[in-house]
Amino acid sequence: MANTLNTITVDGVTQSLESYQAAKSQAAKGDNSTLGKDAFLQLLVTQMKYQDPLDPQDNGEYLAQLAQFSALEQMTNVSEGLSNVSKLVGNIDTSVLVGQLSNMIGKDVQWVKETSSTDENGKTVINKETFEGKVTGVSISDGSPTVIAESGGKSYQVAIANISRIGDGMKNS
C-alpha cells in the first residue's frame, strides 16, 4: 500500500480506506440494526482524532452529542422496560382469567359453533349450531384461554366468546 494516509488498521490488519468502507457497507447490508452505543463512541473518538487542529470543534458540541445519545439510550431502555411490563400484565390477566374459568369445571355450559359452507350459487353461508355439555377443563391455546367441554361423548375446545350460557341443570339437545 503506497499511500499510508488512506489506510485503516483494525485489530492489527491494515487495509485501504476503500476496501474498509466496502467491507463495512457489505456488513451494514446484512445487519439492519440501529447504531449502538459502542459504534457511536467509536465515531465520536474518530471525529475527535481526525479534527482539524487549526480549527478544533468546541467541547460543548461533543458534550451535547453525548447528552443526546445518553437521553436516546435511556428512552430505549424505558421502552424495553414498558414492553416487558406489558407482557407481564398480559400474563397476569391470562392467569386471572384461567383461575376464574377453573370455577366453571363441572358446570353445564351452552355454546354456539359457527361453520361456513358454500351454496350452489357460490355464496358463503354461515351455519350456527348450539351445543350443551359439561366443562371438564381449561386450556390456553395460542395465548387465548378456552374451556374443554364434553357433549355427546365428544370433547370440544370452546372459545370464551362462543359461550352463550353457563349453569347447572341444562338439558342436552
Rank of each mutant, 00 (worst) to 15 (best):
N6W: 07
I8H: 02
D11Y: 09
T14G: 04
L17F: 08
E18Y: 02
E18Q: 12
E18A: 14
S19E: 09
S19I: 07
Y20L: 01
Y20F: 14
Q21Y: 06
A22I: 02
A22T: 07
A23I: 05
A23H: 02
K24W: 09
Q26E: 06
A27E: 03
G30V: 08
D31W: 05
N32G: 11
N32I: 08
S33E: 06
S33T: 08
S33N: 08
T34G: 09
T34I: 07
G36E: 05
G36Q: 05
K37R: 10
K37H: 12
D38N: 15
D38Y: 13
A39S: 14
L41F: 08
L41M: 08
L43T: 06
L43N: 10
V45Q: 03
V45G: 00
V45N: 06
T46S: 14
T46I: 09
Q47T: 06
Q47R: 10
M48T: 15
M48A: 15
K49T: 03
K49W: 01
D52I: 03
D52Q: 08
D52F: 04
D52A: 10
P53A: 11
L54K: 11
L54A: 11
L54Y: 01
P56H: 00
P56E: 12
N59Y: 06
E61R: 04
E61S: 08
E61T: 11
L63W: 10
Q65R: 10
Q65Y: 03
A67D: 09
Q68W: 00
F69G: 01
A71M: 03
A71Y: 04
L72Y: 08
L72M: 09
L72V: 14
E73W: 11
E73V: 14
Q74G: 07
Q74M: 11
Q74I: 13
M75N: 15
T76D: 08
T76P: 01
N77F: 11
S79N: 05
E80F: 12
L82V: 10
L82G: 07
S83A: 15
S83K: 13
S86A: 13
K87Q: 14
K87I: 15
V89M: 15
V89I: 11
G90D: 12
G90Y: 06
T94Y: 00
S95T: 14
S95K: 13
V96A: 00
V96F: 04
L97P: 02
V98E: 00
Q100G: 13
L101E: 03
S102G: 12
N103M: 11
G106Y: 14
G106E: 08
K107C: 02
K107N: 04
K107G: 00
V109H: 01
V109Q: 02
V109G: 00
W111T: 01
E114P: 01
S116G: 03
S116T: 08
S117I: 14
T118F: 04
T118S: 07
D119N: 14
E120M: 08
G122D: 08
G122V: 02
K123W: 02
K123A: 10
V125G: 07
V125C: 09
K128E: 06
K128M: 05
E129Y: 08
T130R: 07
T130N: 06
T130A: 10
T130Y: 00
F131L: 00
F131T: 05
E132W: 02
G133K: 02
G133A: 05
K134Y: 06
V135Q: 00
V135I: 07
T136K: 01
G137W: 02
V138H: 01
I140S: 09
I140H: 04
S141I: 14
S141V: 15
S144V: 11
